[in-house]
């Protein structure tokens, strides 16, 4: 039996109330959304917040819609809802590729998009997806709303730029024409953490690559992306040669760490191969 330490619990009925509760407790409060990360960490006493602010009833933060050529996803949207979204599936196949391989259906039914991102696990899939898509995070605090590019959202492993007293409220993903995307992940067994994964977004202008986004999971890529490989691809003719080289560049700039799931060299090898495959698939879909 694993038992968390003593904790206060309050349930917020609005975002404003949640912000008020969070700021009142200073750095010792944590918002509780799906709870799939926080509760186990509390049981293991890796997290010992003094106050839980339950935001799971804030339906105002649970939505998926399109506005201003962006897909806007409320932070409290469940993984399963994003996976069910037709517009996400049609316009952003990379999102559905990733959602299909995030944990298992039970976790996806209750875990939230915002919670995943704020957990900031280096093996978490959506961080790389949103980096590849050059999405924007919308953060609210007592002082108002600020936006942060997905590529600047993480401050380190398990660390984000969301300050105590603030809430991640929305993600904005640009919807671009002539664009294809894909996400490919290697896991040792179904539902497991990534050994490595890569996402690719390609915007084409005829046969040329107008723009590219590459996201990398669990291989120590700074900010989950591969800017050198993206730079290499920009303006180049789309095709096998470009994709293979881009994969190699992405691997060179990744910095994986050996663990129970594989040695460094293998992970770097995966970074190259998966980047190439994701680019290939994104190109097919563009």
């Amino acid at each position: 039996m694993q038992v968390p330490t003593h904790v206060e619990y309050e349930r917020a009925s609005s975002v404003d109330e949640a912000l008020e509760m969070l700021s009142r407790a200073g750095g010792e409060a944590r918002p509780l959304a799906g709870g799939h990360s926080l509760i186990p960490m509390m049981k293991l006493r890796l997290a010992q917040p003094e106050l839980l602010v339950d935001i799971s009833g804030l339906t105002e933060l649970s939505y998926i819609n399109v506005a201003d050529a962006e897909l806007r996803v409320g932070a409290l949207t469940r993984h399963a809802q994003l996976l069910d979204s037709a517009v996400a599936g049609e316009r952003l196949p990379i999102v559905h590729d990733a959602e299909r391989v995030i944990a298992d259906p039970i976790v996806r039914n209750w875990g939230t998009i915002g919670g995943s991102l704020c957990q900031a696990d280096p093996s978490e899939d959506l961080s790389a997806v949103l980096a590849a898509l050059r999405a924007t995070a919308v953060i609210r605090g007592a002082g108002g709303v600020r936006t942060v590019p997905a590529r600047e959202f993480h401050a380190g492993p398990y660390e984000t730029v969301v300050e105590p007293g603030e809430l991640l409220v929305e993600l904005r993903i640009p919807l671009t024409a002539n664009t294809g995307s894909a996400y490919e992940k290697v896991e040792r067994r179904v539902g497991d953490w990534s050994v490595a994964a890569a996402g690719a977004v390609l915007t084409l202008a005829g046969e040329l690559i107008e723009d590219a986004g590459i996201g990398l999971t669990a291989v120590g890529a700074p900010h989950f992306c591969a800017p050198e490989a993206e730079e290499f691809l920009r303006g180049r003719r789309a095709g096998e040669e470009a994709f293979t080289t881009a994969g190699q560049i992405a691997a060179e700039h990744s910095n994986p760490v050996a663990d129970q799931r594989g040695p460094e060299d293998y992970k770097r090898h995966l970074a190259a191969e998966l980047t190439t495959r994701a680019l290939r698939k994104a190109f097919e879909r563009a």
Binding site: M41, L44, G111, A258, Q260
Partner: peptide, 29 residues
Amino acid sequence: TQPDEGPDPPSAMIMGRNAPHRVPFDPRS
């Protein structure tokens, strides 16, 4: 990337480095 010869290459690999922090559950929220 890794021959299968020799005693326990993955473990030897881990010894030389700090394995990343990993909490033993499925923390996705």
